[in-house]
């Protein structure tokens, strides 16, 4: 069993897609680096921390991107963002079965903050245009840096999200909130608090993650295959339904101070035991209780 959390972006692509099927666009040999990092005398990477290409999944053609947390926490700069935008636009031309986003990102890369923010905005527009054209976008989130900042918004724009318990999803990371608002607002060193606030299990219980899997690449692959036939739906009916759900969430859980309060309100007995459960046992225990 290969850990998804411990794998590099390249290893994840190799193991999630059909063996040997991945072909990279603009590989490191092309040396498309961030000139902004060079200007700031900061080490650059020949792939700018993202790998984009095509492959097959269960025999079906897909386009895929993977962010490398080992390079600047997977943060989005000008080149990084443009590679992803190019891939999403290619998908609009080619209409593959799906686009897979193996996200791992702290959000905008501060060394090129304006370019990164605009890049994320272009990714958002490109995801929405692609979904409008009928191609589903699937997110896999189980890396060491989680998925935060603008990429956290991008993930929730997509058709489906697969997470492990180790995966995290949010907007402002715990460290950012602690630094700005104080440790009493969010203690980023309280790991249990961090996991139950932004971790995969809570996201699954809220209905944001479609699948919660164990931390291994085979489990992510299996879940991604099961979601290949997802049909994008940005109709008025679908978004009205989403709106009602999000409104109900505010009404039911808006006063909750902690994830445990939300899990209790969902009718789960002994919610404090949930973080200890393995993925399969967790999914079985909460069946029929998700928001």
């Amino acid at each position: 069993m290969t850990s998804y959390y411990e794998s590099s972006a390249r290893e994840r692509l190799a193991n999630v897609l059909d063996p040997g099927s991945f072909h990279e666009f603009l590989p490191p040999t092309e040396r498309v680096i961030s000139t902004h990092l060079v200007q700031l005398e900061t080490p650059a990477a020949f792939d700018d921390g993202i790998i984009v290409g095509r492959g097959t999944l269960d025999g079906r053609p897909v386009l895929a991107a993977a962010q490398e947390g080992g390079f600047m926490g997977g943060a989005v700069g000008e080149v990084h963002g443009a590679k992803l935008v190019g891939l999403l636009e290619r998908a609009r031309d080619e209409k593959p079965a799906a686009v897979l986003l193996l996200v791992e990102s702290g959000g905008v890369r501060l060394h090129e903050a304006n370019a990164g923010l605009i890049g994320v905005s272009e990714i958002m527009r490109a995801v929405l245009a692609l979904r409008s054209a009928g191609v589903p976008v699937l997110v896999l989130d189980g890396g060491q840096f989680g998925c935060f900042g603008g990429m956290g918004i991008v993930a929730r724009l997509c058709d489906a999200i697969v997470m492990s318990e180790e995966g995290r999803l949010g907007l402002s990371g715990p460290e950012v909130i602690e630094t700005t608002c104080g440790v009493e607002e969010f203690d980023s060193r309280d790991r249990a608090l961090v996991w139950r606030t932004v971790g995969g299990k809570h996201r699954y219980l809220l209905g944001e993650a479609n699948a919660l899997v164990a931390d291994n690449v085979a489990a992510f692959r299996k879940a991604a295959i099961s979601l290949l036939d997802t049909k994008p739906d940005l109709s008025l009916e679908a978004l009205t339904e989403e709106h009602e759900k999000l409104g109900a969430r505010l009404e039911k859980f808006g006063a909750c101070r902690d994830a445990l309060d939300i899990w209790s309100a969902l009718g789960i007995e002994a919610p404090e035991g949930l973080p200890l459960l393995e993925a399969d046992a967790f999914v079985a225990k909460v069946a029929g209780r998700r928001a």
Partner: peptide, 14 residues
């Protein structure tokens, strides 16, 4: 964050 603010922003974008 607990309530999924990124999802509310994504909903607005959709």
């Amino acid at each position: 964050e607990l309530l999924g603010i990124n999802g509310y922003m994504a909903h607005l974008a959709k």
